[in-house]
């Protein structure tokens, strides 16, 4: 069992999420998380997929994904050469009495209180999976009422951009009565 983070640039077209999700389900690939959002280019979205490869090779998953016409580029982002983060919102039972203890934990993890009332507070934190899980452990003793977590998002370290390297503006010529052209 091994976990990989794939950064997938897709055309921002309707149905593209269904295509990717459908591919993973019908080929029995296991997704740990999938996060999708806009990129610097309005025509392109980025999906960050954390995949658990057991019986299928990572290569096979990438090649099947690459067959989807709306998938433009796929890169595996290794921990060492990417920045990876997820977002945590967690509501804990806490009152002004243990506020001091909570603050100490939050300082350690760079987390912040984003909402609070008489007997609860909601904390926001970002970080990689390990940090988020450590923070949750540390907050456990206050009593966790509810939590919401985003999938992982990731980006390459350094100045390069996936999109710059992969988007060609090349256009495929069509011909009138061009069927012959479409045969190999």
């Amino acid at each position: 069992m091994s976990t990989h983070t794939l950064s997938v640039l897709v055309e921002n077209s309707p149905g593209v999420l269904a295509r990717v999700a459908g591919l993973f389900s019908r080929r029995a690939y296991n997704i740990d998380s999938l996060a999708v959002g806009p990129t610097e280019n309005p025509d392109i979205s980025r999906m960050t997929i954390v995949i658990n490869v057991e019986s299928h090779s990572l290569d096979q998953v990438i090649r099947q994904l690459d067959k989807l016409v709306n998938v433009i580029h796929i890169a595996e982002l290794k921990l060492t050469d990417s920045v990876q983060a997820e977002l945590l919102l967690v509501k804990i039972s806490a009152t002004s009495k243990n506020r001091f203890d909570v603050d100490a934990v939050l300082d350690t993890y760079g987390a912040a209180i984003v909402d609070e009332d008489a007997d609860s507070m909601t904390i926001e934190a970002t970080g990689d999976a390990a940090k988020i899980s450590d923070l949750l452990n540390a907050l456990e003793r206050f009593g966790i009422r509810e939590l919401a977590q985003s999938g992982l998002v990731a980006i390459e370290r350094g100045s390069g951009s996936l999109a710059d390297r992969t988007l060609s503006t090349q256009s495929i010529p069509t011909a009138d009565s061009g069927q012959a052209d479409y045969q190999n």
Binding site: V10, E11, D66, L68, V69, N70, V71, I72, H73, L167, S168, T169, Q170, S171, I172, P173, T174
Partner: peptide
């Protein structure tokens, strides 16, 4: 269309 753009 004169040309097609299919980046993927």
């Amino acid at each position: 269309p004169k040309g097609l753009s299919l980046p993927g």
